[in-house]
């Protein structure tokens, strides 16, 4: 985990600001894999508190638009997310459901005004990213973060098989 201090920090602090909440952005890298049969992974991104209690789903990328919700059949393969949250949901949930992503970097952003962030009280959290791939493997990457931030703060971690870099940026 790295902490990156923004050079903009001094400027931001100096300027008068009315922002009361922070924005949160997450970047998730889906690695390109040299395999005979490749299917885009199912990916879930969520926040846990410091005790591992599920707090907020940020993104679930899966086959969300198949006929008769047939893509839901494999949601349980995101088995940590399924246990923490998915099994109690009626998917798709518009707020965070989306299509599977191709290999590359993908961002999920929540603006400071986003009411979903209101329920996060100040404290330590873990951002969790779980990926499960059809006829492939599964991996969970965890990034400890502190919410909110007094200056632009970045955190990162990396997966080794099904996930690449995961970066979190919190801006006041």
């Amino acid at each position: 985990m790295n902490r990156i201090r923004s050079p903009l920090y001094a400027m931001l602090l100096a300027a008068p600001t009315l922002a009361l909440a922070d924005s949160l952005s997450v970047e998730v890298e889906i690695p390109e894999l040299q395999v005979a049969e490749y299917h885009r992974p199912y990916v879930a991104v969520w926040l846990e508190d410091s005790k591992g209690q599920h707090q907020l789903d940020l993104a679930v990328w899966y086959d969300h638009d198949m006929r008769n919700n047939e893509g839901n059949k494999w949601l349980k393969d995101l088995r940590l997310w399924w246990r923490r949250s998915g099994r109690s949901l009626d998917m798709p949930v518009d707020a965070f459901s989306g299509a599977t992503r191709a290999p590359g970097m993908h961002a999920v952003s929540f603006e400071a005004e986003d009411q979903r962030l209101d329920r996060l009280s100040a404290g330590d959290y873990t951002l969790a990213v779980e990926a499960a791939r059809e006829v492939g493997g599964r991996e969970v990457v965890r990034v400890p973060i502190r919410w909110p931030a007094s200056e632009t703060t970045g955190y990162s971690a990396s997966g080794s098989t099904e996930l690449g870099a995961v970066a979190v940026t919190i801006k006041p």
Partner: peptide, 8 residues
Amino acid sequence: TVLSGENA
């Protein structure tokens, strides 16, 4: 023992 989806 653990399933998801509509017609399982």
